[in-house]
């Protein structure tokens, strides 16, 4: 266990270094964000003065030290482009992304796994073919295109769902009304994400079940006359958990950054769009800390997965020990 913790600490250090370096290695300058629409109107000396004020002319190692100081003292500073504290910006967006991506993760895991298992169990009846074809087609559609189609059909043509925002911005709903309003706005972006992310869980679950169906212990359980449902739940689905869980934890790593395009199309005020805007504006503090949080989240998810594997399947613990 200690060894694993060391591994993850090394990864974390690498993440911190890379998150500092990435924005600095990007071509382009944050000057436009710092001085407004016409940076060309400033004299060279004025531009230089501004870069100096933000330590952007200092050697990279010096800037790295400033970054470390700010990171560990939790003084993450102000965004160059948004003129607001980075922490405030991240906090205001994270909830919406967690709601959207988290709901998608749970639903896509449940639905995808169930469909995958059902498809595997029905393989001999050839009833699974339409399901395989339709999930494959849906998976091949780019998420932004799917978003536009759903928006045009359900938002504009049928008018069933709102087409922008995470809630009715011009109303002051409270209580149940507020919750329903949020869910109403969540519907289309969530549906888009769901449709485009089902395939991973579907195939993982399907092929796991297909594999397990041929295992001797499953055949033996059936021969012993154990009821079908019991075999399905305790002998098949339980053993399908490991690959599905791996998939789930991998998805968890992308929780904060996986919905950029969908957030943009639906004007959903999440962290994905914030990250995208930060990169476009070469907003170094905002890039560094949003990506850092997303990276830390990925590392944490992997770490948790490592710990939980042995709880789900004790055989893995034995394997690790040997």
């Amino acid at each position: 266990m200690k060894k694993r913790i060391y591994h993850y600490l090394v990864i974390l250090v690498a993440v911190i270094v890379v998150n500092f370096l990435l924005p600095h290695l990007l071509p382009g300058s944050p000057l436009k964000s710092l001085v407004g629409e016409n940076p060309g109107d400033m004299t060279a000396a004025q531009k230089m003065g501004i870069l100096e004020a933000y330590h952007l002319n200092d050697p990279l190692w010096k800037q790295f030290l400033y970054y470390l100081r700010d990171l560990f003292s939790f003084h993450w500073g102000n965004s160059y482009s948004k003129r607001q504290p980075v922490t405030t910006l991240i906090a205001s967006r994270m909830g919406w992304t967690l709601l959207l991506a988290g709901s998608n993760m749970i639903l896509s895991t449940l639905i995808g796994t169930a469909l995958g298992a059902w498809s595997a169990l029905r393989r001999k009846e050839k009833k699974d073919l339409p399901l395989i074809i339709s999930t494959t087609i849906l998976d091949s559609i780019p998420s932004f295109w799917m978003a536009v189609i759903l928006l045009a059909v359900f938002g504009v043509k049928l008018g069933w769902f709102p087409i922008y925002g995470a809630y009715s911005m011009w109303e002051n709903y409270t209580g149940v009304k507020r919750i329903l309003d949020i869910l109403h706005h969540l519907a289309l972006p969530l549906l888009t994400m769901l449709v485009t992310s089902l395939m991973g869980f579907f195939t993982t679950s399907r092929y796991s079940v297909l594999q397990i169906l041929n295992e001797d212990y499953v055949k033996m359980a059936k021969m012993r006359g154990i009821p079908g449902n019991r075999v399905l739940i305790w002998y098949i689905m339980r053993n399908t958990l490991v690959p599905v869980f791996t998939m789930f934890m991998m998805e968890a790593g992308y929780l904060l950054s996986g919905s950029v395009l969908i957030e943009t199309v639906f004007s959903y005020p999440g962290l994905g769009t914030l990250m995208q805007e930060a990169v476009k504006a070469r907003d170094y503090p905002l890039i560094q800390y949003t990506f850092l949080i997303a990276s830390v989240m990925t590392v944490t998810a992997l770490f948790l997965a490592d710990i939980l594997y042995s709880k789900i399947d004790p055989r893995l613990e034995v394997l690790n020990d040997t």
Binding site: V148, L151, A152, G155, V156, I163, Y164, G165, M169, W170, T264, V265, F266, S267, T273
Partner: peptide
């Protein structure tokens, strides 16, 4: 009321 909307397709649909 000015919602921030970046995606041109979404704006056109709206």
């Amino acid at each position: 009321n000015m919602p921030v909307m970046r995606d041109s397709t979404a704006i056109q649909q709206a």
